[in-house]
Design a protein around this nucleic acid. Structure first.
Lengths: 287, 287
DNA sequence: ACTGACCCTAGCAAATCTGCCAGTTACATT
DNA sequence: AATGTAACTGGCAGATTTGCTAGGGTCAGT
């Protein structure tokens, strides 16, 4: 969504992106082994890469896995990006770039992410998409056209992007690109689709696991059963009094639990607590 | 999450499940053509099934596509289920059952869905899972054990489940099952995984498209830009006054927009409006 | 020129939330 | 027996939301 400028406001400063440089761009068909002390060259199939994901403990490993997958299926560059809804206004971005350094620098410098139709597509859809299929209406046609023109200068002529969405509200994207023309690359990409889709979800799970284990994103908030229940009914629009009747407890107790929940969530109002709890997947619909 | 009983409350009555019978269970290795007037027998690969998804206009077509996929990969029964977050307390369920009629009747009669660890897993994870791998802690061990024992009586010895999550907060699951023992079925299932995962997401998209086109689930709510902005800041915990300062408008205007948004969302409080808007994907984090 | 959609503003009474305090009870773990 | 966690209850002042009504202004499309 478009949001009004609020440059003069304290919210203007963006959260730092957690990981965002092109670590080891390798435009060859083979990549180095994970253990970088060895220079042996190996190649792993998708299933093996997925197994690596499950045990990966650093972002570098993830980067290497993506590189290998990219090469495995004849792509040259990749990019993983995810948006963690720590806040609506200032979500946390995690980016692992396998783009060429010059392109990535230009991309960030121009803030292309804000208009990139591929990013926009992945944020709103679940179906993998080959770039030449993209036909979404865009807001800022001029900028999008500029982006399209410049990207081909950096060897991004065709690509395949995989949206990832989790029950905790995280939205992610894993893109692979090639300098080949779409007409030539399409059939090969088509075959790789299902395997890369499966990989994309595993990559995302691994990245989130790694960052949750680190102290770089806020630790999981743990709410008690009653706290969740009170939040749930509050999110359903019930007043404290109504919630109290539904749960057969006093209104004071409901307020008590909501206050505790708000404190744990590090917010000051119920609205904020509700939004946070939903975003974090702490309260989910009951089946 | 566990929620206290509220049987004596008006919320006790469940929403009707939209589609939940075993339409044409076909425990053979081939299925009938979509045009049922013809009895010709065909077999389609996964890519072709996905193409069918894109144009499917009825639930029956979806059912047939799932049947074909099931047979294609040596499964016998399937089940698709999705939960649309129209409300936290009373979400809308859409179910397309390819289970044996007797099993499905028993399953619903026992309300197994509420304790089914596979359903629980899919609601909270994104990675496809073979049933024998499942090792989640469960709440009601006795009932889960009962479910496990009885399901094998109905020919569900191994299976593969695919969670689906969308940016609009829908959670879905597509499961395929076989009477084979896991040890025998696992390798074949493993190979089918990526293709069925891709199919699962297309199935879900088609189902949601079909139901949104029908009048069976509430039509999409359209908010104006200002309404979204005001909701966004409200979800961020800002008061009307603070939002007014951020957006450089008067507090009256903020109230006006929030009221309009609440009316469109058919709710009476901001908390509820915020919850609804987040669930429906109407307000999303800004990049 | 008209219509519709959107955005902006105002005022008021009643209902509700928020932040703060200080307790009791039950239950499982150590 | 001691500890910790979760659940439960009460009170109060001040801030905020809610529901309502009633306008004016801009802009695009017809």
């Amino acid at each position: 969504m478009q949001i009004s400028d609020f440059k003069d406001h304290q919210w203007a400063r963006p959260l730092p992106v957690l990981y965002a440089h092109s670590m080891c761009y390798t435009p060859c068909t083979r990549v180095q082994l994970l253990d970088q002390s060895m220079t042996q060259i190996i190649s792993l199939n998708c299933q093996e890469l997925i197994e690596l994901c499950k045990t990966a403990e650093t972002v570098d490993e993830i980067h290497n896995i993506c590189s290998m997958a990219s090469n495995q299926f004849g792509f040259e560059q990749f990019m993983y990006g995810s948006r963690v809804p720590t806040s609506f206004v200032r979500p946390q971005l995690i980016i692992i770039s396998g783009y060429r350094k010059d392109w990535w620098d230009h991309y960030t410098e121009q803030e292309y992410m804000k208009v990139d139709p591929i990013v926009n597509y992945c944020a709103n859809s679940t179906i993998p998409m080959q770039w030449h299929e993209l036909n979404h209406p865009v807001e800022d046609k001029k900028r999008v056209q500029q982006l399209a023109n410049e990207s081909s200068d950096f060897g991004l002529n065709s690509g395949f992007s995989f949206p990832v969405h989790s029950p905790r509200g995280e939205a992610a994207m894993l893109s692979f690109s090639s300098s080949e023309k779409p007409i030539n690359a399409a059939p090969r990409m088509q075959d790789a689709g299902p395997h890369l889709m499966m990989l994309a979800y595993h990559i995302h799970e691994s990245v989130m696991r790694i960052f949750r284990n680190s102290d770089k994103i806020s630790p999981a908030v743990i709410l008690t059963g009653r706290e969740k229940e009170c939040l749930l009914w509050a999110a359903e629009g019930k007043t404290s009094d109504e919630t109290a009747q539904i749960l057969h407890i006093s209104e004071s107790t409901v307020r008590f639990h909501l206050n505790n929940a708000a404190r744990k969530l590090n917010v000051h109002t119920r609205r904020h607590a509700i939004a946070r709890a939903i975003c974090l997947g702490l309260i989910t619909p009951v089946i």
